[in-house]
Design a protein around this nucleic acid. Structure first.
Lengths: 156, 156
DNA sequence: CATGCCGTTCAAAATAATCTGAACGTTCGG
DNA sequence: CCGAACGTTCAGATTATTTTGAACGGCATG
């Protein structure tokens, strides 16, 4: 799933381990179980916390840090969507706008750039709407996945 | 945009060059303009043809191969969606189903797997619907991007 | 205010991904 | 047939990414 989510192998493995574990795990135990260095585990956990799919928890009388996965998979999905939008999508759209602002492109080529900007703006609108209201977005997705589009009638 | 689309630097550059060019380009001209080897250009173009976002065209009286980009950006978008689904998404969903078929996971962990399967199945349904009917999908996206969800009323 | 325990950092090492270019097969004109 | 023009392939070189592990700083405890 790494490529799909845009995260690297270790990060994916740390998350998978937490997903596969009921309780909380310490940094050291994670490193041990996955046979990776503490340094790597530390950085991977930071990345996962940045995404917001892993949380640090306290254990009374223990000064180590423990970690658990965000329990709701849909919440994870929207968190990852948000972060990837920020890292990859937004800079792309900015770049296109920057290109369009220059007087360079003409004719067919400019048309393609404009179409690209339109597409990305549409996708951005969809993603923003999803991120604003995850619950109803989830319902909308289920609707689209399971029923025909309005205006399109099923042949029979 | 490379990371966003899941293609590497050279492939992205070849595509960008074709997007920025009105007419058709030969393999050699592409390699020359981008300062990459013919071999690299050849492989990149193959990848782009696999995605279906670049087409080979004939030029009368010239036995070299010439290439042009798919002119419609939305069509490109759906072609890339289709290919990434095939390469990254489908294997992931298969793996989850395989895990669920085994008797290993119990309790909370199994619940997460089931949620994950549900999420991926929903997304798969959405993507399939999009790929079946790109034109109305595009309209649906514009709708979602620009208007409130059904059942959610705007405050004012 | 030393000592041990933790987590973090980052330069260097290891690994993975990408790119090059020489070798090769095909096709076509003569 | 021959040779030249092309595109493709893939082993090896190069470049980029990831991982390690030693060094470090903070902090709680005695």
């Amino acid at each position: 799933m790494g490529a799909l989510w845009g995260i690297n192998r270790s990060v994916a493995r740390v998350h998978a381990l937490l997903m596969a574990t009921e309780g909380a795990l310490s940094l050291e135990e994670i490193a041990e179980r996955l046979q990776i260095s503490k340094g790597n585990a530390s950085m991977s956990l930071r990345e996962l916390r940045t995404f917001g799919v892993v949380r640090q928890v306290e254990v009374a009388g223990d000064r180590r840090d423990f970690y658990v996965t965000e329990p709701d998979v849909w919440t994870m999905f929207f968190r990852i969507l948000r972060e990837r939008k920020r890292r990859e999508f937004d800079p792309t759209l900015d770049a296109i706008h920057h290109l369009l602002a220059q007087p360079g492109a003409r004719g067919e080529v400019r048309g393609r750039l404009e179409q690209m900007a339109e597409l990305l703006t549409t996708v951005e609108g969809v993603v923003n709407r999803f991120l604003q209201d995850p619950a109803s977005s989830r319902a909308a997705l289920a609707f689209v996945a399971g029923l025909p589009f309005p205006g399109k009638r099923r042949k029979r």
